[in-house]
Design a protein around this nucleic acid. Structure first.
Length: 477
RNA sequence: GGCGGCGUACCCAAGUGGCUAAGGGAGAGGUCUGCAAAACCUUUAUCCGCCGGUUCGAAUCCGGCCGCCGCCUCCA
């Protein structure tokens, strides 16, 4: 609300109640929706990791003008449209690895709560009825604009909305819309109609989280008017502070412009996931702070892929090393790793505690990765060395679990890459060729060995000869 | 027009008063290797859009300018 970072103090100690604006089920989701979903998924995971008992509510708007429009275009019911795109949404989220919220209420299942609230607003003099419509009277709520830092005079002056004659002021917004012939409707004290968009979030968040709760999130484009309206109607209704902390994620841009439905410059989640592993998308979104805009491009995704690959290559080295049986203790220059191991966790927490600075947290992860590689390059051996690496691995998987990235095995990663990149060779065949090449190498038949390596390279497989065998990777980038 | 945000190396990006300006990608040189690849080392911002100011000290605070973007209408 202040527009600045603040210390987080929840309403109830140890508990966090958060509400995130979900989707309107009228079309398939694009990458922008993915960002919001992933950002708040990570915030929730982190708060849980920090020991809070988190309750997250994310709504689904299953009735509104866009849905009605779409239903009319396709000559099907609004329920059909909402059901279809809700299913699509869940499919996308599952593929992206976004966990479901604790409660995912639908607007149409909370009409009574909304009617109750609208009634209360009319009773308290904040809303008025005109021909079956109900409007919130913004002029009655002096604090209007406090979130978006707009003042009502300027809004009036700059209003470029076609003035609805029924409204007392152009700023007033609909709480209830009377329905036209053939539109879905619910009975109310004001006649048949449907709720306005803003009222659902207020009614549902209060129902599940209470009249004042901790965190309310959504895309930055919801600040005005949606969240401003939510504050007005909720605080007018309860007389209490609606939300303590507002969190808004930045946009995804394409050529610097906001990715949006109306500009048509969007990529659907499905399109992206046909070409990239979901982890690449998640990683990519975490490389930039959640509030900043993030420029989408294949180049960026390829870089994200390369970074993840670097991580898993190191993980493979760790795993190989942990399997060694050597008892001869050899540790030279382990100080770097040792120091990193003891400071890593704190650095990670500091980064995340500072407004969920995932980009910085990733930086720390890769510093540790470099230190691990440096250590492994020093040719250590023995139990002590193994213990260091086990500790490193545990730390990495702990934070990887929180960020929901870098938490698979290298094998899973490479298999997935083979699929995504369409590498045309089976693992069995690949192993056979590697064995074949090993024979050639043993016989110092470099020509054959190089030929096999080149052939595999053309298929997108890179071979790496190590001391005790050859490993393969899928080429990325 | 009003309000808000951003401008850090070749690219992406963290850093919002003071140790050597994180990290990733890309490039160059080196170590290792049969040759590679990977990894590691060195290297690529005496400087953080420009100009002024505050301060012992600023990328970081203040003012002005330039450029880009967002919101003000549905939008994650």
């Amino acid at each position: 609300m202040t527009g600045e970072k603040e210390e987080f103090i929840p309403v109830e100690q140890g508990k966090v109640k958060m509400y995130v604006c979900g989707i309107t089920a009228y079309d398939v989701c694009h990458l922008g929706h993915a960002r919001s979903a992933i950002v708040f998924d990570i915030i929730r995971r982190y708060l849980k990791y920090r020991g809070y008992d988190v309750t997250m509510v994310k709504n689904i708007t299953d009735i509104d003008d866009k849905i009605i429009k779409r239903a009319n275009e396709e000559n099907v019911s609004t329920e059909e449209i909402a059901r279809r795109y809700t299913e699509e949404y869940y499919r996308d989220m599952e593929r992206l690895g976004v966990e479901r919220a604790d409660i995912e209420p639908k607007a149409t299942e909370h009409i009574n709560e909304m009617i109750e609230m609208i009634k209360g607003l009319i009773d308290r003099g904040y809303a008025y009825t005109v021909d079956g419509d109900v409007y919130f009277e913004v002029g009655k709520f002096p604090e209007y604009g406090k979130l978006s830092k707009k003042n009502t005079d300027e809004l009036m002056a700059g209003a470029r909305v076609e003035v609805d004659e029924k409204k007392r002021s152009p700023l007033d917004f609909a709480l209830w819309k009377s329905s036209k012939e053939g539109e879905p409707s619910w009975d109310s004290l004001w006649g048949p109609g449907r709720p306005g968009w803003h009222i659902e979030c207020s009614a549902m968040s209060m129902k599940y989280l209470g009249e004042g709760f901790d965190i309310h999130g959504g895309g930055a484009d919801l600040i005005f008017p949606h969240h401003e309206n939510e504050i007005a109607q909720s605080e007018a209704y309860t007389g209490k502070t609606f939300v303590r902390y507002w969190i808004h994620n930045g946009f995804i841009t394409v050529d610097k412009e906001k990715m949006s439905k109306s500009l048509g410059n969007f990529f659907t989640i499905k399109e992206i996931l046909d070409r990239y592993d979901p982890e690449v998308v998640r990683y990519f979104l975490l490389t930039t702070h959640y509030r900043s805009p993030i420029e989408f491009s294949d180049r960026q995704l390829n870089e994200a892929e390369a970074s993840i690959d670097r991580y898993y290559s190191t993980m493979m080295r760790i795993n190989d090393f942990i399997k060694t049986q050597d008892t001869k203790e050899r540790l030279v220059g382990a100080e770097g790793l040792e120091g990193m191991l003891s400071s890593f966790k704190e650095k990670f927490l500091d980064a995340m505690d500072d407004d969920f600075n995932t980009a910085l947290a990733l930086g720390h992860i890769f510093e540790l990765i470099r230190e691990i590689n440096r250590f492994l390059d020093s040719r250590p051996s023995g139990q002590k060395a193994r213990e260091y690496l086990i500790r490193a691995k545990d730390l990495l998987s702990e934070v990887g679990g929180v960020l929901n990235i870098l938490n698979r095995t290298p094998e899973q990663w490479y298999r997935s890459l083979m699929r995504v990149k369409g590498v045309a060779i089976s693992e069995e065949e690949l192993q056979r060729r590697i064995a074949e090449r090993q024979e050639a190498r043993k016989a110092k038949d470099w020509e054959t060995a190089d030929r096999i390596r080149r052939e595999l390279d053309e298929m997108g497989i890179i071979l790496e000869d190590k001391r005790d065998g050859t490993t393969w990777r899928v080429r990325v980038g």
